[in-house]
C-alpha cells in the first residue's frame, strides 16, 4: 500500500466530491418533483395517465441505469446535432456538456423508482383522514398539500433514506460518460500512478462515509417529525 499520491490529488478529490454531491442533490430533488405526481396519478388519476405512469415506472425499473445513461448521452446526444439550427441556438453550449445528460438520466431513474414508492405511500394514508379534510371544506389541492402529501412522505421516510443511498451508489456510473466525480477522479489516479487498489479503496471509504452521513441525516430528520406512536 502506497499513499504518496494522496496529497497531490486531494484537490481533485474535493472537486470530484462536489460533483458527486451535485449529481446526487439535483437528481434527487428533480426526481422527487416528478415522482410525487407520478405516484399520485397512479392512485387517483384518470386511467390513461395512471397507465402511462405505470408503464414509465416499469420501463425505468426494468432496465439497467447504465443503459439508460448511455441511451441518453450517446443516443439522444447523437440525434441532437442533426436537428437543424440547434448548433446556433442558446441550447447548444448546454447540450455539448455531459453533465446535463447525467442529471437527466439520473432524474428519470429517481422518478421511476420513487414514483413506485410514492404510489404505495399515497395509498397508505388512511381514508378517514382525507375524508375529514374534505369534510372541512378543503380544496382538493389543499388536501394534498396539508394532509395527503405530508402523511405519505412521513410513512415512507425510512424507505426514502434507503433509496437515497442507492442513488448515491449509482452516481459513479456518470464516470462512464466522462464526468469526473469522485470515482472518476480515482480512475485518473489509477491511470497516472499505476496504483490499482489504493485509489479504489480510498473512494470506497469515501462512499462509506457519505452513506453514513445520509443515514445519520435521515435519522436526525426522522426524529424531528412528530408522530403518534401506538402503544
Amino acid at each position: 500500500m502506497q499513499w504518496y499520491w494522496l496529497p497531490e490529488y486531494a484537490p481533485k478529490f474535493v472537486d470530484g466530491l462536489l460533483v458527486t454531491l451535485q449529481l446526487l442533490g439535483l437528481s434527487i430533488f428533480l426526481g422527487m418533483c416528478l415522482a410525487i405526481p407520478i405516484g399520485l396519478v397512479q392512485v387517483t388519476g384518470p386511467r390513461p395517465l395512471a397507465w402511462a405512469a405505470r408503464a414509465f415506472c416499469t420501463m425505468i425499473r426494468g432496465t439497467p441505469l447504465l443503459i439508460q445513461l448511455w441511451l441518453v448521452y450517446y443516443g439522444l446526444g447523437s440525434l441532437f446535432p442533426s436537428v437543424p439550427g440547434i448548433r446556433e441556438s442558446f441550447l447548444w453550449p448546454i447540450l455539448r456538456e455531459a453533465f446535463p445528460y447525467a442529471i437527466f438520466a439520473f432524474t428519470l431513474s429517481v422518478a421511476g423508482y420513487e414514483g413506485e414508492v410514492m404510489r404505495g405511500a399515497f395509498r397508505g394514508v388512511p381514508k378517514g383522514e382525507l375524508e375529514a379534510a374534505r369534510a372541512f371544506g378543503m380544496h382538493p389541492f389543499t388536501v394534498l398539500r396539508r394532509i395527503w402529501l405530508p402523511r405519505a412522505l412521513q410513512n415512507v421516510f425510512p424507505t426514502l433514506a434507503g433509496e437515497m443511498v442507492l442513488t448515491l451508489k449509482s452516481t459513479p456510473l456518470a464516470a462512464t460518460i466522462t464526468i469526473f466525480e469522485v470515482y472518476g477522479v480515482s480512475t485518473i489516479v489509477r491511470q497516472e500512478t499505476y496504483r490499482i487498489y489504493e485509489p479504489l479503496l480510498f473512494v470506497g471509504g469515501l462512499y462509506i462515509c457519505l452513506t453514513g452521513a445520509i443515514v445519520l441525516l435521515f435519522r436526525w430528520a426522522e426524529n424531528r417529525i412528530p408522530r403518534a406512536r401506538a402503544g
Binding site: 425499473r61 426494468g62 432496465t63 439497467p64 443503459i67 439508460q68 448511455w70 443516443g75 447523437s78
Partner: peptide, 24 residues
C-alpha cells in the same frame, strides 16, 4: 455495435428492450 454503426439511439433502445423483456 453502436460504436461500429454509429446508430447509437437504435442499439441502446434495443438493448433496453431486451433487458426489459428479461425483467418482465
Amino acid at each position: 455495435a453502436a460504436g461500429a454503426t454509429k446508430s447509437y439511439f437504435l442499439f441502446y433502445v434495443i438493448a433496453a428492450a431486451l433487458y426489459l423483456s428479461l425483467t418482465l
